[in-house]
Amino acid sequence: MSAEELTDSPVPWVAGHIRRFVETGGQARPGMNDLLLTTRGRRTGTLRRTALVYARDGERYLVAASNAGADRHPAWYLNLVADPAVTVQVGSQTFAATARTATAAERPRLWLLMVETMPSYRGYQETTKRQIPVVIVEPAV
């Protein structure tokens, strides 16, 4: 992605978290695995940035499209399904990556990694009828 203008999440607490992440060089919540994910809006083409908790699976980053247990997928997830080319910031490092939804065969093990990282995901899954997608983010080569 180029140096186009970024639009941060319209959700006030997420926008505040993004601001703290940027101000602290990625240390907004010490001890938490947070990253910034930038996707391209599927309808507008605008670069959109959100903050997410991640788990690691080798060199890959995992995020959950939990939307706090809502019955609809978060916009960032719909954006990366439409265009899997994303930008990720972990700490002060920013890199291009490709994102995809874990397959049915991959998901059980990866979901456990997400729940170990953020136990509240288990409760989120219990409150929604949809299966919360696990997204695999692989740094571009």
Rank of each mutant, 00 (worst) to 15 (best):
Y54A: 05
T101E: 15
V53P: 03
V81Q: 02
S92Y: 00
M32P: 01
S66H: 00
Y124R: 11
P12L: 08
P108R: 07
S66C: 04
S66K: 04
A85Y: 00
R49Q: 15
A85T: 03
L37C: 10
P108M: 04
D83G: 09
V90H: 03
G25M: 00
A96T: 00
R20V: 03
L35N: 13
D71I: 07
P119E: 06
L37D: 06
H17F: 12
T44P: 03
V88N: 08
Y124H: 11
Y54K: 06
T50C: 13
L80F: 01
V135D: 04
A75E: 06
S120E: 15
M114A: 11
T94S: 12
P30I: 03
V115N: 08
P30R: 06
M118D: 12
G91L: 00
A102W: 07
T50K: 05
A28L: 14
E138Y: 09
L113W: 05
E116V: 07
G91W: 02
Y121W: 13
G41D: 12
P119T: 06
R56N: 11
G69C: 08
L35V: 12
R60Q: 15
R19H: 13
I132K: 01
T38W: 09
D71A: 01
K129V: 09
R43Y: 11
G31Q: 09
D34S: 14
K129D: 11
T98W: 03
A99Y: 01
D83F: 01
L80I: 02
T39N: 03
I132D: 07
V135E: 06
V115T: 07
V53A: 14
P119A: 08
L112D: 15
T98S: 13
D34E: 15
R42A: 09
Y54T: 08
E126Q: 15
E23H: 12
A3I: 10
P139F: 01
S66V: 03
G91N: 00
L62H: 08
P84N: 10
D83A: 11
V22F: 08
T44L: 12
E23M: 10
Q125T: 04
